[in-house]
Structures are given as C-alpha cells and as structure tokens.
Design a protein around this nucleic acid. Structure first.
Lengths: 232, 232
DNA sequence: CGTTAAATTGACGAATCTCAATGCACGTGG
DNA sequence: CCACGTGCATTGAGATTCGTCAATTTAACG
C-alpha cells in the first residue's frame, strides 16, 4: 500500500497492458510480504481472498487426500498463482507452501475482479494467462495418463536440458523427493528410475545430471511439444 | 451465416452477457454443421482455427502418444470446447471425435478474439468459463495422482449418483471402454474394479448400476468437493 | 441368425508402492 | 575439530496394483 508499486509485478505480462490508474487501484489494497522457507501460505478448501504474485523464491502447490499428498506444480518467480480461484471467487483447490524464502504480493481478490471489469487490457491479459495455465495442466494430465513414471522422468530431464540451452549436464532444481511428487511417483521409485536411465546414458550424482547420449535418451523419451513444451 | 443465430448458443453462459450486435458479428462467420457418430473433428497439433460449440450429441476429447491413447474428457451439450487454444491462437492439445450424431457450431477463432476485445461482457464470460475449465482439469490431476483406479471408479459412481439426484440406481452414460479410458485404466482393469466394488455393495449389470449400501461406498471412496464436485 | 464389437475372465508379467534398513550429507553443539 | 542428530537418498525384499495377451462370453444390430 505504500509508495512502491512493485515494479516486478508491474512488468508481469498479466499487468503490463493496464493503465497506470487501474494498476494503482489494484495495488491500493495489496501488500508485499516476505516468508521464510517451508511456511504454509494457503490450505486447500479455504476461500480465495487474495491473488498471490510470487516475486522471489519458490512455492509448492500441493494437494492432499486420504493421508496422501502430491505436488501439483511448482511456482517460480515472477508469476501469479491461483488466479482461477480468484476469478471465480471460489475455494482454493490446492495448498501452497514456500520452498525457500519468498517474497509475495497479495492482492485482494475482489479488487482483481473489480479492475477486471474496468480495464480491458487487464481482462485480455487475464484470459491469455488463464488459457496458458489451462493448457499447461492439460499437458500434465496427458503426461500422467499416457506415460510411465520412467518416461515422465526421461522427458523431465530433456526439458531441463532445454531450459539450460540444451546443455548435456545441469543441476536439478528440485529436491529429489519433491521431483518424485511432481512426477507422480515415490522417492524410492525415482531412485530406481534414475538407475534405469543409465541404460540410456544418463548419469546422476547427487543433484548433477549428465546426459551422455542425447539421441538414446530422446529415442526412449519421445518428447513432443504437445506435452513437454512449456510455451505453446 | 443465415438468419438463425443459434438460440441454443446464445443462451450459453459464454454468450449470454454480450450485446446483440456483437453476438451477431461473432456469428457472422460461424456455421452449424451436423456430424455422424465416430467422426474425427480435430487432430491434436492442428491450428485452432475454430471455437467449437457442441449443441447436441457428445464429443470425446482424447490424446495419443507413442501408440497409446487416452480420453481426456467428454463434452456434453451445450458447451464449448478448446476455448483455450482459440484464445491463445495455438495448436490443439487434444483430438476430438463425435461419439454420437452431433450438431456443432464452429466460430472462426479470429472472430472470437476480435469480439473479445470489443465486448466486455463477453470477455468476462470467457474468463469465468476458462477458470472453470482450469479448475476442472486440476481436479482431474488430483484424482489421477492421489487415488488408485478403484478409488477413482468408486468416486465416479458416486458422482453419477449425484447427477441423478442421489438415486441408488442409474445407467452409465458411457461405454465401459470409454469410461476406462477417462478413468485412466484398461477395460480389463475396469471389469475387475467393478467386481471389486461388489465388496462395497455395488452391483453392475450391463449399463445398470445399483448402489446397495451408500454408506459403505462413501466410506471407501471418500469423495470430496475439492476433487469430485463439478460445480465449485 | 450371423457378424461384429464390446465385455469378461484367466494367466502372466511389468510397474509401482510399502516397509525396513542402511548410507550419506549437512549442520549444531560440545 | 569432532560427535551426533536429523533428514534425505538409496537399496533390498515383498506385496499390490495394473497392464498385456489370449480365449471366451455377451450384447447389438442388420
């Protein structure tokens, strides 16, 4: 609420197209908060009172049922989360916790909905953002239903390699236990999956990954932009 | 293009709030087509040239990878499909085929995007619709990652019971092979799952389902509105 | 009826989870 | 500096879930 209008937030695609006036209105009731690692931010089932914008750090969006828990997605800066619940004035479908020290801007949901009606540029950006989120989750579903755990892991490694400009060695950006949950498997199974990928030239040492034979791995993983690409 | 402006479409939430003028503009380039059963409408990977509105019949949205195929969702009238690809001017992530004889209105994607910018009511409706779709897919992901196939089936039956006003017996609205694909299992596994649910008082005869002991089934299935509810 | 596709059943194997034990890193406090 | 937690990762053994293949039964429809 102070003078600062959160420049990192302003430059987000979601807010870039709106008028200064409406942006100011939107941020009037917002506040920036810093959280330590491993702090619960949101519990699934709660009302979506705020749209959250992750400015720095990392947030785990997870869900529980019947003593089981799974990580649905990991949010990296700078991006928003739980936009859909805010729009629909509904309950959160996922819980959220910080993975590292994180700075988060919280914008009252009712303000988001109000400004949405006032600002066509913002409305357009929300739609484009939501459509991207939707497509991303569809890809997750296809990944889960069409592939085995080993295939999901292989494609995950190829994706990370792409993120590093196609590098043949890189560092995992997630704890293995986290990665296992994201990929829909147990940590034990992940360990064995890494070993199984040795047959395709993958070496893993701690958090370091080396792809010795990109062709072999790609032949096995059969990546496709209709599942693995984060952009289109 | 003719006089008819597709009243069934007009009354959809998505189009209800827009001006007559903009609705007319949107429908200027649209056309209604009737398809026989089991006709391919869309192949994944193709450009999203049209927003589709299913007026009657049923459409299967499915996806293939590496010789495998899975049904991601079933579309029932009256609703749109592949709105997200239209909005983002991207390629379809899913293929579509008719399950029965179906009437479908096809609206050029560029018109949808153009009218979106002109009509705030339409913009708002698109966002609300997309947010609902997003939340629905999140629930699908949770269902897949947190539950076994048997649990998914049990909850599916409870959902269908709810759809029939809580009736203890009802008729499956999908072929079993289709249902298996939607639930992420093989037809053989579905057969055995139905048998396994006998232990909880479920009787299946052809397409007829009887729930003899709702409490038993609910105790086993542990349904939750954060996964199973289609509305919120 | 006869043809076709779906559904079921059985036998088997692969994929995955669970439980328990061990190993390994990292940080704290002595 | 080292002992010792603590938590994550790994490994092994065994059970469970689930998929595959083949054969059979059932249902649907001309």
């Amino acid at each position: 609420m102070p003078d600062s209008t959160f420049p990192e937030v302003r430059s987000l695609d979601l807010f870039a197209d709106m008028s200064d006036e409406n942006y100011a209105k939107l941020m009037r009731g917002a506040y920036l908060q810093t959280f330590p690692p491993h702090v619960d931010l949101i519990g699934e089932g709660e009302d979506a009172d705020f749209l959250h914008v992750l400015v720095s750090g990392a947030v785990d969006l997870f869900s529980s049922w019947s003593n089981r828990e799974t990580s649905v997605m990991i949010v990296k800066p700078v991006s928003t989360f739980i936009l859909a619940a805010t729009i629909r004035d509904a309950r959160y479908l996922m819980s959220a916790r910080t993975m590292e020290k994180s700075r988060i801007v919280m914008i009252p949901s009712q303000d988001v909905r109000a400004i949405f009606d006032l600002d066509a540029g913002f409305a357009r950006a929300v739609v484009v953002e939501l459509a991207a989120c939707y497509r991303s989750v569809i890809k997750t579903t296809k990944n889960l239903k069409l592939r085995t755990a080993l295939e999901r892991l292989a494609n995950y490694l190829l994706s990370r390699s792409q993120d590093h400009d196609g590098a043949l060695n890189f560092v995992l950006d997630l704890e293995k236990r986290q990665l296992a949950s994201v990929l829909g498997m147990t940590p034990e199974n992940l360990s064995r999956a890494f070993k199984a990928l040795q047959a395709y030239g993958v070496q893993v040492n701690g958090e370091n990954v080396v792809i010795n034979n990109m062709d072999d791995l790609q032949t096995f993983a059969k990546p496709t932009s209709l599942i693995d690409d984060n952009r289109t």
